[in-house]
Structure formats: structure tokens, C-alpha cells
């Protein structure tokens, strides 16, 4: 194998390997999506199609729940549109790092931009030096490795979940794997006062605003968290413990 292919493969494998531990949380959540689909009496084919066409777990979960409750399609679309709004922020956050890559790559990596893949990709990109030659280092393959691993895990686990969903007892609390996965992502990212303030504000606001119609509480809490984080950073400065050079 020539050097180019080796580099690409190495980046892909590194991305995939970093993503792999997330599977411990993602697979149970895929299974529990299957439980929700069965409870909602949603047919298997469209249910699995949400995994490949929408490919965003939390909104798929709400889709199944609202479908089961007989909610109008308009309500389902609007709710999913709001829950998934955070992906706009992920897009903005990862955009500077994807700038050097071709349109085709951007298209593919945008499709694969889920919570878990984004978390792995952004924390890797942030460890690289500011002017790193991302194109020459084939970093798109790292992001692809992480994204593809998650994609494959999600497609398989939701398919299995839809198939056996009726037999998973609720007492297993598999849905708890979603907040656990996010705790595993967020907590190590809390490195300074501003970050902790952003998390605290968003967390408290999300609980207080949970009763807001159409799940708007999630977006409100996220924006408030970002604002508080910026305020604290402006007031106290960024006390980053990393990259002290």
C-alpha cells in the first residue's frame, strides 16, 4: 500500500477507534428506539428509514412517540425541526475545520454530523495546532471514521431494536444510555470557569423551561448557556488549562 492510502486509512481508523467507546451508549439507545417504534405501532420500514434519512436519535424518538399519540404530521415536523436546531450550531462550530475539503466531502461529513461524531471530531480538531495543514494530514478521513462508525452502529442497533423491541423490558432503563453518553462527552470538556457556567446555565434553564411548548426549552437553554459562557469569559477571561504556549 502506498503512503497516501496508509495515511488515509490510519486517520480513518483513529477516528473510528475514538468513536467506538460511544457505542456502549449509542447501541442501547438504538434498541430503545425500537421499543418506542413498537409501542407506537409504527411500521418497520419507515421506522428504519428515519435512521438513514433523519439520522438524529432524539428527534427519531420524539417522532415515534408523537406518531403513537396520533399527533398531526405538522406538529411532528415542527417538534423535530426545533429539537434538531442544535445541529446548526454544530455546523457553525465544525465549519472552520472543514473549510479546506472538497464539496463532496463537506456533503458527506455534514450528513454524518451527529452529537457523538461531532463531539469526537471537534475535540480532535481542537488538539491540533491552529494552522495545521488539515488537507495534507487527511483529517477528513478522521471525521469520516468517527461519523461512519456511529452511522453503522446506529443503523444496526435501530434495526435490531425494531425487530426485537417488544421483548426489551422497560425495567432495563436502556433509555438512560442517552444522558450517560452525553455526560461522558460534556464532563471532560468542562475545563474552565466559563464552560462550567455555560453548562450550569443551560442545565438549569432546560429544567425550568421543560414545560415550554414544542420543546422550545432545549433551544432556549442552549442559547442562554452560550450567552452566560461568553459573559463569564468576557468578565474573567479565558482561563484555559490546555495549550498554554
Amino acid at each position: 500500500m502506498d503512503e497516501l492510502k496508509t495515511t488515509r486509512l490510519r486517520e480513518f481508523m483513529r477516528g473510528a477507534a475514538t468513536e467506538l467507546p460511544m457505542m456502549l451508549g449509542v447501541v442501547p439507545f438504538g434498541l430503545i428506539f425500537g421499543v418506542a417504534v413498537n409501542a407506537a405501532m409504527m411500521p418497520a420500514i419507515p421506522a428504519q428509514a428515519t435512521s438513514s434519512i433523519i439520522f438524529a436519535g432524539a428527534s427519531q424518538m420524539i417522532f415515534a412517540r408523537l406518531f403513537g399519540e396520533g399527533a398531526p404530521l405538522f406538529t411532528i415536523v415542527l417538534t423535530a425541526a426545533i429539537i434538531n436546531l442544535r445541529h446548526v450550531l454544530y455546523s457553525a462550530s465544525i465549519a472552520p475545520f472543514l473549510k479546506p475539503f472538497s464539496r463532496k466531502w463537506k456533503f458527506l461529513l455534514a450528513y454524518l454530523l451527529t452529537d457523538e461524531a461531532y463531539a469526537i471530531a471537534i475535540s480532535h480538531m481542537e488538539t491540533l495546532p491552529p494552522n495545521a495543514p488539515l488537507l495534507r494530514w487527511h483529517k477528513q478521513w478522521y471525521v469520516f471514521g468517527a461519523g461512519f462508525t456511529l452511522w453503522l452502529g446506529w443503523q444496526i442497533s435501530t434495526a435490531v431494536g425494531i425487530f426485537i423491541g417488544g421483548q426489551i423490558p422497560p425495567s432495563w432503563s436502556l433509555d438512560f444510555s442517552l444522558p450517560l453518553t452525553f455526560i461522558a462527552i460534556v464532563v471532560p470538556a468542562l475545563r474552565d470557569r466559563a464552560g462550567i457556567a455555560a453548562a450550569a446555565a443551560a442545565g438549569i434553564c432546560a429544567v425550568a423551561a421543560a414545560a415550554m411548548p414544542l420543546k422550545l426549552g432545549l433551544v432556549t437553554a442552549t442559547l442562554l448557556g452560550i450567552a452566560i459562557g461568553m459573559l463569564v469569559e468576557a468578565r474573567f477571561g479565558a482561563v484555559k488549562m490546555e495549550k498554554a504556549s
Binding site: S93, F182, V186, A202, T222
Partner: peptide, 17 residues
Amino acid sequence: ALRFVPIAALTAIITPE
């Protein structure tokens, strides 16, 4: 501002759960 995106968005999903 974007540095706070993952922290804020994911914590907002975690705490109500």
C-alpha cells in the same frame, strides 16, 4: 461563542432526563 455549543446543548438534554 461556538466553543460553548456542545457543552450547552448536551447539558440541556442531560439535566431534564
